[in-house]
Amino acid sequence: MTRIPAAPLILGLAGLIPFVWGAATYLSDPLAQWGATYLGPRFIGPYVQLFYGSVILSFMSGVLWGFSTRAEGAQAATGYTLSVIPALWAFFMTGGGPVAAGTNLIFGFTGLLILDYAFWRWGLTPPWWMSLRVLLTAIVVASLCTGVFL
């Protein structure tokens, strides 16, 4: 794994804000009250995490689809097929209440990391891809764990 360029690292870390903010408002009642008052109740606790998590899994499907364009033949077909899994997972698995949805997002992001690894091993991603994805996934999963296990 290699050094992550500044732009993807900064943008990737900025993309963690809704996950970390949701965890912080779950853990801090005064912060949750402030957030509900000034941002609205949809933008605190598990609500922001679950909606944003679904969006990001869908976004990552698009990223993997883009990586698939670098492949040919059977590998391209496999890549395109695998690339839709995160979006479908988000669509079908994020109902049933906040604990079930949060648990399924944890599994979704963990599964996405496995797909990231496959695309990286196939040479379809930048060399630094796994360094970025492991970091971001660890923070996303830790943030989602607050709503599922606490």
Score class of each variant (00 low, 15 high):
M1D: 01
T2K: 15
A7L: 15
P8T: 01
L9D: 00
A14H: 10
A14Y: 10
P18R: 08
F19Y: 03
A24D: 06
T25L: 12
Y26N: 08
Y26I: 02
L27K: 02
L27Y: 14
L27E: 10
S28N: 13
S28I: 04
D29T: 09
A32F: 15
A32Y: 12
A36L: 15
T37P: 11
P41Q: 14
F43K: 00
F43T: 01
I44P: 02
G45F: 11
P46K: 11
Y47G: 14
V48E: 06
V48R: 01
F51V: 12
F51T: 11
Y52G: 03
G53W: 01
V55C: 07
L57W: 06
M60N: 06
T69S: 15
A71M: 09
A71H: 12
E72Q: 11
E72S: 14
G73P: 12
A77G: 12
A77Y: 15
Y80W: 10
T81N: 09
T81A: 15
T81L: 15
L82V: 15
I85S: 05
P86L: 04
A90L: 07
F92K: 05
F92E: 03
G95N: 10
G97L: 14
G97F: 11
P98R: 08
A101D: 00
A101R: 05
G102A: 10
T103F: 09
T103N: 06
T103S: 10
L105V: 02
F107K: 12
F107S: 10
L115A: 08
D116T: 08
D116N: 11
F119V: 01
W120E: 12
W120S: 13
L124I: 02
T125V: 01
T125W: 02
P126Y: 14
W128F: 02
W128L: 00
T137A: 08
T137H: 01
A138G: 13
V141D: 01
V141G: 03
A142P: 00
G147L: 04
F149E: 15
